[in-house]
């Protein structure tokens, strides 16, 4: 190599100085503006603790499916079971393994295992329960994540940073609700119609419902709530006057596996 130690130190020293100069220049031209700033949009929805009440009495099967479809559409969730192109068709076992679910329907004994009495009311037996991430106040997934790629916001939303996630899937083992999905395959070909308002995903990261944080920031209700025709109520659990609190006062509600101490923030009126 044509560089001796002296010259190396000289060049390294100079480039360090230049590097410092870069930041220094910014400080001179626009003081205090170098770091990124986060200013909430004025119309964004805020709460101390977001919670969701699902009124199963008002939710028929068709509406439940519509809610799930609305959610999956605006989040570019791929459909491995019914792909957009017949050429992409997978055998059912494989499609089930790859499936990404943010919001989906389940029977009572699957959504609330161990809670079904021997002779469950017929109506409840055939009911489609909407299940999703419970945004637990005490989330095991956040506890186990080794990179804080999944974390809890101050307003209770359990968030997912898909750019930080290393794909270890510890959170999937930690979640007692099966609410987390991993991208086992490239999801993009399986997205029916790309929705420009939300990013698509790459292979190897975990994803889930985030209570539509991107919509809340624009002052919009979560997509499922909007599609639910009043069967879902979203609001601030800490605000006595919120509709969520009004429902919790008025109706008896249950939560999924509350005995695990996760303190789920999705409430069901049955």
């Amino acid at each position: 190599m044509g560089m001796d130690r002296r010259e190396f130190i000289r060049i390294a020293g100079l480039s360090t100085l230049l590097g410092l100069g870069g930041k220094g220049a910014f400080e001179l031209l626009a003081p205090g503006r170098v770091e990124a700033e986060i200013i909430p949009a004025p119309r964004s929805m805020k709460a101390k603790r977001w919670a969701l009440v699902i009124n199963q009495k008002k939710l028929d099967d068709a509406t439940a499916q519509k809610c799930a479809a609305a959610c999956h559409r605006v989040h570019n969730v791929p459909d491995f079971i019914n792909p957009p192109d017949d050429k992409l068709k997978l055998n059912p076992g494989v499609a089930n393994r790859y499936e990404i679910k943010w919001l989906w329907t389940a029977h009572f004994h699957n959504a609330f295992p161990g809670d079904a009495p021997p002779h469950l009311a017929e109506k409840v037996e055939h009911m489609s329960f909407l299940v999703l991430c419970n945004h637990c106040a005490n989330p095991p997934c956040v506890r186990v994540c080794p990179t804080k790629a999944t974390f809890q916001r101050e307003d209770g939303i359990v968030m997912m940073d898909m750019h930080r996630c290393i794909g270890c899937r510890f959170c999937m083992a930690g979640c007692p609700y099966g609410s987390r999905s991993f991208n086992w395959m490239d999801p993009r070909p399986y997205v029916k119609e790309q929705y420009p308002g939300y990013p698509t995903r790459e292979i190897g990261v975990v994803e889930k419902c985030t209570f539509c944080d991107e919509r809340l920031a624009q002052g919009l209700q979560p997509a499922c709530v909007e599609a639910s025709r009043g069967a879902m109520v979203f609001g601030d659990l800490e605000d006595e006057k919120s509709q969520v609190r009004e429902y919790l006062r008025k109706y008896f509600t249950i939560r999924r596996k509350a005995h695990l101490g996760t303190n789920p923030q999705v409430y069901y009126i049955v």
């Binding site: 494989v94 089930n96 393994r97 790859y98 499936e99 990404i100 679910k101 794909g167 899937r169 999937m172 083992a173 099966g178 999905s181 991993f182 991208n183 086992w184 395959m185 490239d186 292979i203 190897g204």
Partner: peptide
């Protein structure tokens, strides 16, 4: 291709 070439899936992750 992704970890989909294994037998793992959303249930046995």
């Amino acid at each position: 291709v992704g970890l989909g070439i294994t037998g793992m899936g959303r249930d046995v992750s």
